[in-house]
C-alpha cells in the first residue's frame, strides 16, 4: 500500500496554486490529506500532480463577515472545533465534531477538504446543507459561488470543476432564536455515519418555521430532507408529527443497501434520529 509516483508542487500563494491547477487538469489538491492520502495509498487515487496548499497562509482562517462565518481552505477541523467563534455562532458544527474522526485526523484534516471529498457518509456535507452554506470555487480566472445543496452531486462527486479549488466556505449564522439538533449512529464513535441528521428551526407563535434538515449516510451524497421540512413548516411541534414526518421521509429515501448495513436499517435510523434531532432543536429554540 504505497502511493504511485506524482509530481509535487508547493505553491506559496493562491494565484500560484490556481495557475498550477489550470496547467495540470488532473492535479489533486493536498490540504489535510486525511481522505486523499489513504486513497493514494490504496492507489484508488493516482494523481500525476499534487498541489500542496499547506504553505498558503492566506487560506488558513476562520472569520466573521457580519452574519456569515467564512472558513478558509486550510482551516483544520481541530481549529474549527475549538474556535470560540464557531462555538458561539455555529454551535451545531462545534457539537457535531464529537462524531467526526479522531484527534490526530482532526489535527490535519480540513473542512474544505472534507467537503470536496464528498463522502456520502460524512457529516459536514449534511450540516452545510442545513446551514445553507456557500462554496467559493476559485480558478485562475475568477471565482464562483455554489450553494451547498448544489455542490454535492454524488458519491465522491461535487460541482467543483477541473482547475478549481474550494478556497472558502461561507456559512450564514443562524437567525437569533434558532434551535438545532444533530444525531448520528455509526458503528464506533468517530466512524463514518450509517445515518446522521442535522436540523435547524425556529418557533414563531408556537409554530415551527424555517425548518431545515439534512442527512448523511442515506443516499449517494448528503441530502436535504425537503419532505420533512415541508411537513413541519408552520405546524406546532409534536412527537406524533415528528414521527410521521420522519417515517414519510424514510420511506422516500433510497439509501445504500450493503451486505453489512441494509437500506431498511438506514431508513430505520432516519425514523429514529430525525425526531430526536427535531426534539433537541425545539428545546434549544427560543
Amino acid at each position: 500500500m504505497k502511493p504511485a509516483a506524482f509530481e509535487y508542487h508547493r505553491p506559496d500563494d493562491l494565484p500560484s496554486a490556481l495557475a498550477l491547477l489550470r496547467a495540470h487538469e488532473d492535479a489533486s489538491v493536498l490540504a489535510g490529506g486525511q481522505s486523499l492520502v489513504p486513497m493514494m495509498n490504496y492507489r484508488l487515487a493516482q494523481p500525476d500532480h499534487l498541489v500542496d496548499i499547506n504553505r498558503i497562509d492566506e487560506l488558513d482562517f476562520i472569520r466573521a463577515e457580519s452574519a456569515v462565518i467564512v472558513i478558509g481552505a486550510l482551516a483544520r477541523h481541530r481549529t474549527i472545533q475549538s474556535s470560540p467563534l464557531i462555538a458561539e455562532r455555529l454551535p451545531m458544527v462545534a457539537h457535531a465534531y464529537e462524531w467526526i474522526a479522531h484527534a490526530a485526523v482532526r489535527n490535519r484534516g480540513t473542512l474544505c477538504g472534507n467537503l470536496c471529498h464528498a463522502d456520502p457518509a460524512s457529516e459536514m456535507p449534511a450540516l452545510m446543507q442545513v446551514l445553507e452554506a456557500e462554496m467559493v470555487l476559485a480558478r485562475a480566472d475568477g471565482t464562483r459561488r455554489v450553494p451547498a445543496v448544489e455542490f454535492f452531486t454524488g458519491t465522491y462527486e461535487t460541482a467543483r470543476a477541473a482547475g478549481e479549488m474550494l478556497t472558502e466556505v461561507r456559512i450564514p449564522t443562524p437567525p437569533a432564536g434558532s434551535g438545532w439538533g444533530f444525531e448520528e449512529v455509526s458503528m464506533r464513535k468517530g466512524d463514518f455515519a450509517w445515518a446522521a441528521v442535522g436540523c435547524q428551526l425556529r418557533i414563531d407563535n408556537g409554530a415551527l418555521v424555517d425548518v431545515r434538515m439534512a442527512a448523511a449516510g442515506v443516499g449517494d451524497c448528503a441530502l436535504r430532507l425537503r419532505g420533512i421540512e415541508a411537513a413541519l413548516e408552520g405546524e406546532p411541534p409534536s412527537a406524533d408529527l415528528f414521527a410521521q414526518a420522519a417515517h414519510d421521509a424514510a420511506e422516500a429515501l433510497d439509501p445504500p443497501d450493503t451486505a453489512a448495513v441494509s437500506a431498511d436499517y438506514r431508513r430505520d435510523l432516519v425514523r429514529a434520529l430525525a425526531p430526536r434531532a427535531l426534539t433537541a432543536a425545539v428545546a434549544r429554540a427560543e
Partner: peptide
C-alpha cells in the same frame, strides 16, 4: 449482533 443486525 451489530446494530443493523440487532435492529433487524
Amino acid at each position: 449482533v451489530t446494530p443493523p443486525i440487532l435492529r433487524g
